[in-house]
């Protein structure tokens, strides 16, 4: 079947016009993946095209790219599925990472952030038996996070990294959870305190779900981040704005049935953080003028008493 790839090229050695879209038209087997098509280009049409790949079986994590704007492992993406009627495919390098050449991005920041979370087990002492034994059950619980193949797709699409490259990011946070929840690791609170940092830490995630959507291995990094936040709250890592945000939300929902935005703003900045509060005021004032400020007395869901009871029942059960 015929396929047309529009490949975004970049050649740092060209003095000018070093970025362009190049079209390749070729005949490929019906069952070909996008990677097969790209390899066909590289091997039979244009040896200057640079791309990274190895296993061709979605294990090694090296073939991450954007196909029609969405980050994918190209070895896991079949041409026919995206182009049933010969539609052109746009192939670009991953986002949020500097491009080295054509479809290859620089992953050093990715790995630096992985290193930042100390991605190895840190037990406090040697076990008496001389062997660290983890139960099957505890390992099964870690299966999703252990599945990460470090492809960087989640990082490519993360909406926070788009505006702030100090954010530690979905992959490293998912990896951190792999160690936080490993029964053989004894550095839970140290790890969580580090990740609890105000800038770049786990509270910066917007919960946009991009990482969940693109992860080819079902790691669901955002859910891992939510697990970490929950545990951080549990162990009392209390110093950041983010912590106050969730806490106040729970109080507000259980007290009124619905969210009280003004209270949320106040509590998450911290009642004593005058500067941040002042920061919030101008928009509030403008909104007030136009009759827009969230109501100071929250709308009460008609029988919020029931919701309070539910919250209580759940608390008692736990």
């Amino acid at each position: 079947m015929e396929v047309t790839l529009n490949v975004k090229r970049f050649d740092p050695e060209k003095p000018k016009n070093n970025t362009w879209i190049q079209e390749y038209v070729m005949d490929i087997h019906q069952s070909s993946t996008v990677l097969d098509a790209l390899i066909h280009v590289r091997e039979e049409m244009d040896g200057t095209l640079a791309l990274r790949c190895a296993c061709r079986a979605s294990i090694c994590g090296s073939c991450g790219m954007k196909v029609n704007g969405e980050a994918k492992l190209v070895c896991k993406t079949r041409v026919e599925e995206l182009s049933p009627n010969g539609e052109k495919l746009l192939i670009e390098p991953m986002g949020n990472q500097p491009v080295i050449k054509d479809l290859i991005v620089d992953l050093s920041a990715f790995f630096a952030k992985m290193e930042q979370i100390s991605p190895f087990l840190q037990p406090n002492k040697e076990p008496e038996s001389g062997e660290f034994i983890a139960s099957n059950d505890s390992m099964e619980k870690l299966l999703t996070e252990m599945n990460c193949i470090m492809c960087g797709l989640c990082v490519s699409e993360c909406t926070v990294l788009e505006v702030d490259n100090t954010f530690i990011g979905p992959a490293a946070l998912a990896k951190a959870s792999r160690f936080v929840y490993d029964p053989r690791d004894d550095k839970t609170s140290e790890r969580l305190n580090c990740l609890n940092d105000e800038a770049g830490g786990m509270w910066d995630c917007t919960r946009c779900m991009q990482c969940v959507e693109v992860c080819p291995k079902g790691v669901s990094p955002m859910d891992r981040i939510m697990d970490l936040r929950e545990t951080a709250i549990e162990i009392g890592a209390k110093k950041t704005h983010g912590y106050h945000h969730t806490n106040s939300f729970e109080k507000s929902v259980t007290a009124n049935g619905r969210l009280d935005e003004s209270r949320l703003a106040l509590e998450s900045a911290g009642i004593f953080n005058i500067f941040r509060l002042l920061d919030l005021v101008p928009v509030g004032l403008r909104a007030l003028i136009r009759g827009k400020l969230p109501p100071f007395i929250p709308h009460k869901a008609k029988d919020n008493k029931k919701i309070k009871e539910l919250a209580k029942a759940i608390k008692e059960k736990e």
Partner: peptide, 12 residues
């Protein structure tokens, strides 16, 4: 023969 004569990520 080698088509790519460049110095950056020359997989050729």
């Amino acid at each position: 023969k080698i088509q790519n004569k460049g110095k950056v990520y020359n997989t050729d």
